Amino acid sequence: MALLDDVIDASGGMARWNSLNRFTLHLSMGGTLFSNAGHAREFKDVTAEGSTRTQSLRFTGITGGERSGSFQPDAITIENLDGEVLQSWSNPGLAFAEVGPPALADELYLVFFCGVAIWSYLTTPFLLAHPDVVIEELSPWQESAETWRRLRAQFPAHLTMLASEQILYFDESALQRRMDHDLFGMKIAHSSWAHDSFGGIVVPTLRRIQTLRPDGTVIAKPVLMDVEIFDAVFE
Rank of each mutant, 00 (worst) to 15 (best):
R152P: 06
I78Y: 01
T77I: 00
Y109G: 04
G93W: 06
L110G: 11
R149T: 09
V111C: 01
I118P: 01
L151N: 10
S144G: 14
A97D: 08
E84C: 07
L110M: 08
S120K: 10
I118T: 09
V133I: 05
L122S: 13
N80C: 02
L151M: 08
H130P: 03
P131E: 01
V99P: 11
R152Y: 09
W89F: 07
F112P: 03
V116C: 04
R152H: 04
E98Q: 15
G115R: 04
V99C: 06
P125N: 07
E146I: 08
A117N: 06
E146Y: 11
D132S: 13
T123M: 06
G115N: 00
V116E: 00
L127F: 05
T124E: 05
D106K: 15
P92L: 08
Q142S: 02
N80L: 01
A117E: 08
A105V: 04
E107Q: 15
G100I: 12
E98G: 10
L122C: 04
L110Q: 06
L127T: 03
E84R: 13
S88T: 13
A95R: 12
V85W: 10
L128I: 05
W89L: 01
G83C: 01
E79D: 03
T147Q: 13
N91Q: 13
H130T: 02
A145F: 07
I135T: 10
I135R: 08
R150P: 02
A153G: 06
I118Q: 01
A97V: 14
E137P: 15
W148Q: 11
T147G: 02
S120P: 00
S90G: 15
E84K: 14
P140Q: 11
G100A: 10
E143V: 10
V85Y: 13
L108R: 15
I118N: 02
T124G: 07
T123I: 02
F126D: 06
P140M: 12
E79K: 06
D106A: 07
E136S: 14
A95M: 08
S120H: 08
F96K: 09
V85H: 11
Y109C: 01
F96E: 05
E146A: 11
L122Q: 11
A103K: 15
S88N: 12
T123Q: 10
T77N: 02
I135Y: 12
T124H: 09
L104V: 00
G115C: 04
F96L: 03
D132K: 15
G83F: 03
A103E: 02
N91W: 08
F112I: 03
L108P: 05
D132T: 05
L94Y: 09
V134Q: 10
A97G: 04
L128M: 05
I135A: 10
Q142G: 03
